[in-house]
Design a binder for these strands. Structure first.
Lengths: 204, 204
DNA sequence: CATCAAAATGAACGGTGTTCAATAATTATT
DNA sequence: AATAATTATTGAACACCGTTCATTTTGATG
């Protein structure tokens, strides 16, 4: 039997990730302490470093889960949209609502930085694709003659712009907009994006 | 004579701010240590807490200086633009270039967070106006019938979108775009913003 | 059951921001 | 000018952090 070892190890990892996720949801990335997480998970302080390289790797696992949930929320939000324009609007609204309802977890996606010298592992880098992937299809409908490379580039730009609007509005550093006014501004913006793409797509 | 005291105090503050700014320029916000800053400024560790409430207040002073320089860079970049469209493009490009040439100082404008419970003082909040203020005039030319309130809202959205594109592209977390390709994407985007404003401005 | 490898433990380490009693410097008073 | 009172400067000490590692405990093996 070699299963018992791995089983416990995976249970340990999962418990630590769950505990870290809960701490991050409640207190944000800055409120994450190794001693809190291990105490919540019911293990010794040192066990964290048995399961993970360091706290940063634990954060990456939490962020990957958040990206997965964000992807699911975006898929559901845009599923029944009748047109590419409606789909883009639904995606932007879905992104805004996810950010509002998961503020700390969502913020940590962008706040977290690897310590100098260490690099983000590939398995986590790949999970960032969900941020762009849902935008590609409606953009392709609006600009059919765009090749794959340009589509990805355009999707990245569209996401970055929407993210900027959401992020700047949510962070209290800037005077907060009422939620419905922010949503209206987002709608206006996605309509502009769609109209721009349509115009280019129609003309050639 | 009460001048000697204040004079030394201001000199101490200025020295600490300059030292912190240099550390942040070279190593980023995370690379800022109280012991390094005070050693560079040639004062004792405790003096930092005589001049400032804490490290965060020192960071805010550095960020205010950065905002001032960013404002000057934007003013210069857009000064000779012949049309509102050209002005918006020049502002976006100017923002991109400032971010590229002052990466750490620029990044710390958005990375820094006040510790829980403490609030950003008004004198620093006000300095954030430069991020939007230069966009208002060209937007007003494109949409003359927009009132002040909506102009500010629209300028905020435009800045947030451009900032998102620049930020996502610069952060190495996402695969980096070549600089000229990023600039082209930014140009396309500002043209879209301007065209959208013009269309609304002409119709209604 | 005995032996060994692997995992779990928590005290200890080095580094952090911040405090504070002691010292030095400046201002006020006689 | 001399002295007292006030204020600024200092750096050792403190509390807390992520991380390490010698030790103990646990699980697998013959």
């Amino acid at each position: 039997m070699i299963g018992k070892r791995e089983e416990k190890r995976e249970g340990l990892k999962a418990g630590l990730i769950a505990a870290a996720r809960e701490r991050m949801r409640a207190n944000g990335l800055k409120g994450l302490r190794a001693r809190d997480v291990t105490a919540d998970a019911g293990v010794a302080l040192g066990s964290l470093y048995n399961a993970f390289e360091d706290l940063d790797e634990l954060v990456l696992h939490v962020n990957s889960i958040t990206l997965g949930e964000l992807g699911a929320a975006l898929a559901e939000a845009s599923a029944s949209a009748p047109s590419p324009e409606a789909r883009l609007r639904a995606l932007a609204r879905g992104y805004l609502h996810f950010a509002l309802e998961n503020r700390h977890l969502w913020a940590s996606l962008f706040e977290h930085r690897m310590p100098e010298g260490r690099v983000v592992p590939d398995w986590h880098l790949a999970d960032h694709a969900v941020l762009f992937s849902h935008i590609i299809a409606p953009l392709a409908q609006l600009e059919p003659e765009l090749d794959e490379e340009h589509l990805i580039l355009r999707a990245r730009t569209a996401f970055a712009a929407v993210h900027g609007i959401v992020a700047i509005s949510i962070e209290e550093r800037f005077i907060g907009l009422p939620k419905d006014q922010l949503e209206a501004e987002l709608d206006r913006f996605t309509a502009l994006l769609a109209a721009g793409a349509r115009a280019v797509g129609a003309s050639g």
